[in-house]
């Protein structure tokens, strides 16, 4: 790791994000949907008098209230960052910092699962068709290519539209998972297929055939270890792409739930409320977080790639 400091930093950041996602109930001061009420604000004011907690805007519907005005709805909105609310509150009066932390779960868990499924399914398909060859390979390869020919986002929109509408909760999560897995499985399958092809004709696979090993032994014991580096690197790459796609879908309002604290969805909510320029402090954190996360994962997968290629396997 000292050979490649960028990959080291990337890996550390990815692990930090994962820790945050795991511990979000412990770290986040509020729930992601808690609206900071006026009473609370008063309480805060008593604890820390003189703090500039009430500069900002209150936006309700299309109406914009000047700062310092009291909201008719009894909550404060658009609070700039302060000691109490580190990143301020958004246009609905929700704590941006808490939403960011809760959002890490939605950002990581679903794409993580999707990447894992894509890699598992894609690797099985790729290794099978790569080793077997022949008709099976021809047909499945052409099918995978047909799927790859459609732009990912278009395919996602079609798949979401084709599903029974109005899904919520667990069914919405499953449908999104399905969409991402369908999009990324062909890519993984093709990568693993070509990695398998490279070792299929190798001397040690021939040697295994010559001593009469079963196909399963050859695929899992002889070929699989050689394909593993490709698999790990591909897994990391798919993870970052899945995060990206998930955030894109969230931004387009096609995510798990339009009100979720998922970062793409958060940006979309601000966009739809028209407050991106009024409360920019509520928009920038998810944007930066997602950029940092994806760059870090890419640095990590780059490091993994180098690690496998140059160090090899020493047991």
């Amino acid at each position: 790791m000292t050979e490649n400091p960028a990959a080291f930093v990337g890996t550390v950041i990815v692990f930090l994000f994962v820790c945050v996602a795991l511990c979000s109930p412990l770290i986040a001061p509020y729930s992601y949907q808690t609206i900071i009420r006026n009473e609370e604000r008063r309480a805060v004011k008593e604890q820390a008098p003189g703090e500039a907690y009430d500069i900002g805007y209150t936006v309700v519907g299309s109406e914009l209230f000047p700062r310092n005005s009291r909201s008719r709805f009894g909550f404060i909105a658009g609070l700039r960052g302060s000691i109490t609310f580190v990143l301020g509150t958004d246009w609905q009066g929700r704590d941006v910092y808490s939403r960011l932390i809760w959002g890490a779960r939605d950002v990581l868990i679903l794409p993580g699962l999707a990447a894992a499924f894509s890699v598992a399914i894609g690797a099985s398909i790729g290794a099978t068709i790569g080793y077997m060859g022949g008709w099976l390979d021809e047909i499945i390869s052409r099918l995978l290519e047909a799927l790859l020919a459609i732009p990912a986002l278009v395919l996602a929109l079609v798949l979401i539209a084709a599903q029974p509408g109005g899904g919520s909760g667990i069914s919405a999560v499953l449908s999104l998972l399905f969409v991402i897995v369908v999009i990324y499985t062909p890519i993984v399958a093709r990568v693993i297929r070509s990695a398998t092809l490279a070792v299929r004709a190798s001397g040690y696979v021939e040697e295994a055939k010559l001593r009469g090993e079963s196909k399963a032994h050859i695929v899992f014991r002889e070929i699989f270890p050689s394909v593993l580096p490709a698999l790990v690197v591909e897994g990391a790459l798919r993870f970052s792409y899945a995060i990206f796609l998930n955030a894109s879908l969230g931004f387009l309002g096609l995510g798990v739930s339009p009100t979720s604290p998922e970062w793409g969805a958060t940006i979309n909510q601000a966009r739809r409320a028209g407050t991106m320029s009024l409360t920019p402090w509520a928009t920038w954190p998810p944007v930066i977080a997602i950029a940092v996360l994806i760059i870090s994962i890419n640095l990590m997968s780059d490091g993994l790639r180098r690690f496998f290629r140059y160090e090899g396997h020493h047991g």
């Binding site: 001397g203 040690y204 021939e206 040697e207 002889e222 270890p225 050689s226 090899g312 396997h313």
Partner: peptide
Amino acid sequence: PQNPDASLNPYI
């Protein structure tokens, strides 16, 4: 085989 590099599995 001709090429001992290729005939031994690097992971075994």
